[in-house]
């Protein structure tokens, strides 16, 4: 009885902490495993900072190295995209901009961005009301 109640409590707690991108193959990369890595920049933003961009969640990982695992995960998640813009070279994904299906009618739009150059890999996950074109326009240098 005690064990059952403790298990229920732990599961409930865990459920509250689930990542927004649950169900995606890229989700495990955002579990904090790279926080201590010297060659990785991890950015996590939510709330008012993203309001001007009409976004609600921003999560990115910038690796100063080649990450074929990330590329594989992006390609798998990209299969379910409802809109995409991609480029390949020599069998490798150079960049991919994906608009993923909403999890429900009232759920925010979801995006996955990926870019690979020599010795660098960028992975970005976004949620919000902004369209793909709006996002590209907003962040263009």
């Amino acid at each position: 009885m005690k064990r059952m109640m403790l298990t229920t409590l732990v599961l409930f707690w865990a459920a509250l902490s689930l990542l927004a991108q649950e169900g995606l193959h890229v989700a495990p990369f955002y579990d904090g495993r790279f926080n201590k890595a010297k060659d990785v920049v991890s950015l996590n933003v939510k709330g008012s900072a993203l309001k001007p961009y009409r976004l609600t969640l921003y999560r990115s990982l910038i690796f100063e190295r080649d990450m074929p695992d990330v590329e594989r995960a992006v390609l798998l998640d990209g299969k379910q995209a409802i809109d995409r813009e991609v480029a390949h070279r020599d069998g490798r994904l150079l960049y991919g901009f994906y608009c993923l299906p909403q999890t429900s009618k009232k759920a925010p739009l979801r995006y996955l961005f990926y870019r690979h150059t020599t010795g660098k890999t960028i992975l970005v996950y976004l949620e919000g009301a902004a369209t793909l074109e709006e996002i590209k326009r907003m962040f263009k240098k």
Partner: peptide
Amino acid sequence: AQVQSTMGELAEAK
């Protein structure tokens, strides 16, 4: 600032 930089890199990819 890091976010802007990262998204700028993505925007330049094409």
